[in-house]
Design a protein around this nucleic acid. Structure first.
Length: 245
DNA sequence: AAAAGATTCAACCGCCTGTAT
DNA sequence: TATACAGGCGGTTGAATCTTT
C-alpha cells in the first residue's frame, strides 16, 4: 500500500506531507464537511473518502498520539462488552482516540488475548499485562444480542453536546423486553451476585458498585425509564461524556 | 548480519443510512 | 415513491516495522 496507485486520475496509497499540508489548509479555510468538495478545494487528487479518513484518523488536531493508558484500555474493554464492534461509539467516549485507533488496538492487542484467556480461565478474574499496562477483567464476554441496530441509525448517534440523559434516551429504546433488562443486568453485575450488590468486573472505578446497586429491584418498564432518565448512564461505566472528534 | 516470522496501523473497500430531488 | 448522492461505518488488506532465530 506504500506505493501510490493512480487510477482514473485518483491517487491512492500513503499520503505525502505535501498532501497533508494541502488538506489541512483546506480544512482550516473551509471547515470540516462537504467532503465531495474537498479534493477540488484542496487541489488533491484524492477521493472524498480518502480525504475524510485522512483528516479524521490522522490530521485532526484533537487526536491523541502514543500508547493507550490503562484507564483507556479498561474503558475500551467495558465499552466493547457493552456495544460490541461499534467502534465509532466507543471512540466517542474516549477523548482523542479515533474509531480506527481503537479498532486496530482491539484487533492487535486485546481481541485474541482476551479470547485466549477466556478459554483458559473460565469463571476467574484475570489480569493481563500489556507492556506497562495492567488489564484486570472478567473473562465472560456478553455479546449485545437483545437488540440489533444499525451503526448508522439516527437514534444511535447522539449529539456531541448531548447530556447523559439525552444520550441514553437516544441509545436505549423505551420499555425494553425482559431479556434486554437481563442483559444489562448481566453486564453490570457478576454472576450470582445480583442479590449482594457487589461490584462487577473491571479494574474498579467506583461506578460499578453504583450500577449494580441501582439495578437491584429494577424490573419493570417504568423503572427502566426512571433509571435511564434519572441516573447518569456514563457513570455506570466509570467514564464521562466527552466531545466527539 | 541476514532471513523469517510476527505485529502494527494507515488506508481502502463495500455496504448502509439519511437526505434531497 | 423512487432514485441519486454524500456521509459514515466496520471489516479487511498489506506495507512498514519490529522481533526472533
Amino acid at each position: 500500500m506504500g506505493s501510490s496507485v493512480e487510477r482514473y486520475g485518483v491517487r491512492k496509497g500513503a499520503w505525502t506531507t505535501e498532501e497533508d499540508f494541502l488538506l489541512r489548509k483546506c480544512i482550516e479555510k473551509y471547515g470540516e464537511g462537504k467532503w465531495h468538495q474537498v479534493p477540488v478545494r484542496a487541489g488533491l487528487r484524492r477521493c472524498r473518502k480518502s480525504c475524510r479518513l485522512r483528516w479524521l484518523n490522522y490530521l485532526h488536531p484533537d487526536i491523541k498520539r502514543g500508547e493507550f493508558k490503562s484507564d483507556e484500555i479498561d474503558l475500551i474493554i467495558r465499552l466493547h462488552k457493552l456495544l460490541g464492534n461499534k467502534w465509532s461509539l466507543i471512540a466517542g467516549r474516549i477523548p482523542g482516540r479515533t474509531a480506527n485507533d481503537i479498532k486496530n488496538y482491539w484487533n492487535s492487542h486485546l481481541s485474541e488475548k482476551l479470547a485466549a484467556r477466556s478459554d483458559m480461565e473460565k469463571g476467574k478474574c484475570i489480569t493481563m499485562n500489556n507492556q506497562d499496562k495492567s488489564i484486570t477483567m472478567k473473562n465472560k464476554v456478553i455479546k449485545p444480542q437483545p437488540w440489533t441496530f444499525s451503526s448508522n441509525s439516527k437514534w444511535l448517534r447522539c449529539p456531541v453536546n448531548a447530556t447523559p440523559q439525552e444520550t441514553v434516551s437516544n441509545l436505549i429504546p423505551k420499555s425494553p423486553p425482559e431479556e434486554s433488562i437481563l442483559w444489562w443486568k448481566s453486564l453490570l453485575v457478576e454472576d450470582g451476585e445480583e442479590d449482594k450488590g457487589t461490584s462487577c468486573s473491571g479494574s474498579g472505578t467506583g461506578g460499578e458498585l453504583d450500577a449494580a446497586f441501582v439495578l437491584q429491584g429494577f424490573e419493570g418498564e417504568g423503572e427502566w425509564d426512571n433509571l435511564l432518565m434519572n441516573g447518569n448512564f456514563w457513570d455506570l461505566l466509570g467514564t464521562e461524556q466527552k466531545p466527539i472528534i
